[in-house]
């Protein structure tokens, strides 16, 4: 597994596309892809939004932690792109707090299982873990 993180609009997807020569249909976006697609896609963009949708769907839906474990198990070669969202003021809204927490936990698990973790800032990649081949 490979993780790419950084703030919004820091150049994560562009970096992934160039570095791994990803084709358009090899990237699914957490904002609107089928949740099942996460398990087969080569690259999942906005995993933090996958977490958000799992929380919004509520009861009857797999909890984010279990979902992420299954993701790690079933798609261990995935390139996962995730916004860093934990900065700033803790949100007043409970659902926003829950989303931040669950995204943070998912990110820690994905980083733990990734051979390489890259963080983008101003479009520049910094290797936080492993090496960039």
């Amino acid at each position: 597994m490979m993780m790419i993180t950084g703030g919004a609009f820091s150049g994560k997807l562009e970096f992934a596309r160039k570095h791994f020569e990803l084709k358009e249909d090899e990237v699914v976006c957490g904002a609107d892809c089928g949740l099942a697609d996460v398990f087969t896609a080569k690259c999942v963009d906005h995993y933090e939004l996958v977490v958000r949708r799992l929380l919004e769907n509520g009861a009857g839906q797999e909890a984010p932690e279990a979902f992420t474990e299954r993701f790690i198990r079933e798609n261990p070669e995935a390139i996962v792109i995730m916004d860093e969202i934990g900065g700033g003021i803790i949100p007043l809204e409970k659902s926003e707090r829950l989303w931040r927490e669950q995204t943070g936990r998912a990110g820690c698990r994905i980083a733990e299982r990734s051979d390489t973790v890259i963080r983008l800032c101003c479009g520049l990649p910094a290797v936080l873990k492993g090496t960039l081949g």
Binding site: G7, A8, F9, S10, G11, E48, D83, E84, I85, G86, G87, G88, I89, P91, E96, W99, R100, T103
Partner: peptide, 19 residues
């Protein structure tokens, strides 16, 4: 762009532009 908050249009455009 690191707080994960969805802002109204003007602020969202500003975060995108500064990025």
């Amino acid at each position: 762009g690191n707080d994960g908050i969805s802002y109204e249009e003007g602020t969202a455009a500003y975060i995108r532009a500064l990025g």
